[in-house]
Simulated assay, not measured.
Amino acid sequence: MTAVFTGGEESDHGSSSLRGERGSIARRERRWGLFFVSPWIIGLFAFFLIPIVASFVLSFTNYTLASTEPTEFVGLDNWKRMFDDPRVSHGLWVTLKFACFAVPLGIFVPLALAYLLTAKHLWGRGFFRVLFYLPSMVPFIAAVIVWRFYLNPQSGWWAKFLGWFGVDSPDYLRSSAWIMPTLAYIGLWGIGNAMIIFIASLNGVPRDLYEAASIDGAGTWRLFRDVTWPMISPITFYNIVILLVGLGQYFLVPFALTDRNGGVDNIALFYTMHFYNETFVNFRMGYGAALAWAMFIVVFSLTLLLFWSAKYWVHYEYEER
């Protein structure tokens, strides 16, 4: 009995010593791990979290960059001012009109191209995939300059093409009827990323589902509606979220094609352009911060609504319902 008891003490001592060594190794690994990720953590705080908090605080002040007067806390004055600012409502309306064109085109055009580029008997699939993806690699500001020359109603390439048939080209960038479809059409220049993602999702649909549906008599349309669309719905959902976030940041194209006031009668004065004018032209940083946070709240709310709706139309292969 004594020998057994002594051996147990030695075993407990050995196991506790082993646990102590493992704990020491784990602590050392955690310290080294924190050391190697510390540049990212410092960058996160210095360039993201602190500016975000600072901008939120500024939205409650009258801070003006070009003013020598001291900054004062004004409470909700900047937020109340947005409801009386006609350019805020105008910018939101312009953004909404653009979304009505851009969202359907940004989803269904890359999906259609991806569907065609995954066809079994398409010759040169790799070539066409590269061809459609390449425009998204071009810096967008350079592409916008090309589009400006292309759409010029007097000397543009499209105007000359229409001139061969005796048709006058409208002024796409100065017409309230044409500006939104034109901007949405230009947006197709960058659909390469969405197309590649859709191609990957289409290639991931199990072939046996198509075979089973075909045996049951499903045609091309039913195969797409009842098999393809549900199986790629998570990718469609992802692309809609990306589009929605992009709408809240849409600025470069209308700014480069028109001016900072959205052209004639402010027909392309997006909300982001009004934010730019108030913040970096008029230097009303406090009001600009409030405008930025208001757009964040709108986009975040719409994204939450989209996530809520996902349970009704997004299908996950291994999800239990």
Rank of each mutant, 00 (worst) to 15 (best):
R125Y: 04
V167H: 07
W164G: 01
K97T: 10
S169A: 15
L96M: 14
P86L: 04
A119Y: 04
L122M: 13
G166Q: 05
W147Q: 01
F149L: 08
A99Q: 09
P104S: 08
V144E: 01
P170K: 00
R148K: 15
L96K: 05
S89Q: 14
I145A: 14
L117A: 07
F165D: 05
Y115Q: 06
M137W: 03
A112Y: 06
R129W: 06
V109T: 10
M137E: 01
V109W: 06
F149N: 13
F161G: 03
S89R: 12
D85W: 10
V130C: 11
F161R: 00
V144R: 00
L131Q: 00
F132I: 03
W158Q: 02
H90I: 02
F108N: 07
F128Y: 15
L105P: 08
R148A: 13
V144H: 01
D168E: 15
K160L: 13
A119Q: 14
G163M: 00
S136I: 05
V146C: 05
R125E: 11
S136Q: 10
T118K: 03
A159I: 01
L113N: 01
L117Q: 08
R125Q: 13
A119C: 09
G91V: 04
H121L: 14
M137C: 13
F165L: 14
F98R: 02
F101G: 05
V88S: 10
W158S: 07
F98H: 12
L105D: 03
S136L: 00
Y133P: 12
N152H: 13
W93I: 06
S136V: 10
A102E: 07
V103H: 09
F149W: 15
F108K: 04
L134Y: 12
L105G: 11
G106H: 05
Q154A: 08
L116M: 13
F140M: 09
F132A: 02
K97D: 03
A114Y: 04
A159W: 02
S169H: 04
H90Y: 11
P153L: 00
L117H: 09
K120L: 07
K160Q: 14
P170C: 03
L162Q: 10
V103S: 12
A102M: 10
W158A: 14
D85P: 13
F108L: 15
H121N: 15
K120D: 12
L134C: 02
R87T: 12
S155A: 06
Y133Q: 04
V130G: 15
A142R: 00
L117G: 09
F108E: 08
V138A: 06
R125P: 09
F98D: 06
S89N: 10
R125K: 15
Y133I: 01
V109C: 10
D168M: 04
K97C: 10
T95F: 06
F128H: 03
P135D: 08
L117Y: 11
A143N: 03
L105S: 11
Y150G: 00
K120E: 14
H121R: 13
W93F: 13
W93T: 07
A159H: 02
F127M: 10
V88P: 11
P104V: 06
R87N: 15
L92A: 11
L117F: 15
Y115E: 02
F108W: 14
I141E: 08
D168K: 08
R129C: 04
